[in-house]
């Protein structure tokens, strides 16, 4: 699943069309989704970004192979062109900072970004937005450092009055190819094939039902050992009896572990 966090509806517009997302009303936010994507419009600023991100991720419980994308426009100094996209590798806010890991090759610029509380009209020497820090703060409870992407598009050189809804839509639209490339590369690094097939998982669960918690942990470890060491499908038979005595349980576990780890 890809979780997309944007501040403005204008930033969402191109993504809705591109990813063929449909409106959903699960949470009290403007949200869109497809089978593989959930997009939320947070509103502007640190608090809104943090609250909406928390609400979305708390509701959905992301997994180790999911990804979070915070996409948005930002102001930047003149060494960035208007419309240029970059990835943030350090997010600063007041005295705090976060460091998302960018562990995949890509062709964009990387930069620090400063999150501020008001639109920036004073010229600074690094890009500035209002949401990255809030998004990271909330999302880092749910994601590893390499699962979060901060994809920013420069909208102005600290002239917020020049930024219009139409400009935001256009700038994001023009960067959809860059976004696709980044998402593909990030997915390559994040993706992990499951260790067990669905059938194996079900079998492990059925057998674990016969065991105590500590025994089923030991059994699960032995199954992992078998799969990783032998790299073969796991064939396990469930006991014929409905219930096992304490002694039978111990003997059964011992024989399972022996078989799996020989």
């Amino acid at each position: 699943m890809l979780y997309i966090i944007v501040a403005l509806s204008a930033e969402a517009r191109g993504l809705i069309d591109h990813f063929k997302l449909v409106r959903t009303y699960t949470l009290p936010y403007t949200m869109f989704e497809s089978e593989q994507i959930k997009l939320i419009v947070t509103g502007i600023g640190f608090d809104n970004a943090m609250m909406a991100t928390s609400a979305l991720l708390g509701h959905c419980s992301p997994s180790k192979t999911d990804m979070l994308l915070n996409l948005g426009i930002c102001a930047a100094p003149k060494n960035f062109e208007i419309g240029e996209a970059f990835l943030a590798h350090k997010i600063c806010y007041k005295d705090g900072f976060y460091f998302p890991d960018i562990l995949f090759e890509h062709s964009l610029k990387e930069s620090d970004i400063l999150s501020v509380d008001e639109p920036a009209s004073e010229i600074l020497n690094l890009p500035v937005d209002m949401e990255s820090y809030g998004v990271y703060k909330a999302a880092s409870r749910f994601f590893s450092t390499h699962q979060m992407l901060f994809f920013k598009v420069v909208s102005d050189h600290f002239e917020p009055e020049r930024v219009t809804k139409e400009l935001a839509i256009e700038l994001i639209f023009k960067n959809l190819n860059n976004l696709n490339a980044v998402l593909n590369s990030a997915e390559y690094v994040i993706k992990k094939d499951p260790l067990f097939t669905q059938e194996e998982k079900e079998r492990i669960n059925s057998i674990s039902n016969y065991l105590t918690k500590a025994q089923s942990d030991a059994f699960y470890d032995a199954c992992c050992y078998y799969k990783l060491h032998h790299k073969k499908p796991l064939h396990l038979s469930v006991p014929e009896k409905e219930k096992l005595s304490k002694k039978e349980r111990s003997d059964y576990l011992e024989s399972l572990i022996k078989t799996l780890t020989l």
Binding site: H89, F99, I102, L103, F104, E105, H106, S107, L108, N177, N178, N180, A181, N184, S185, E187, Y188, V189
Partner: peptide
């Protein structure tokens, strides 16, 4: 811009934190 980069992990020390 090259959109056709084959997805790959970054090289060692692609980022230096100082």
């Amino acid at each position: 811009m090259n959109h056709l980069l084959k997805p790959s992990h970054c090289d060692f020390f692609s980022h230096l934190y100082i």
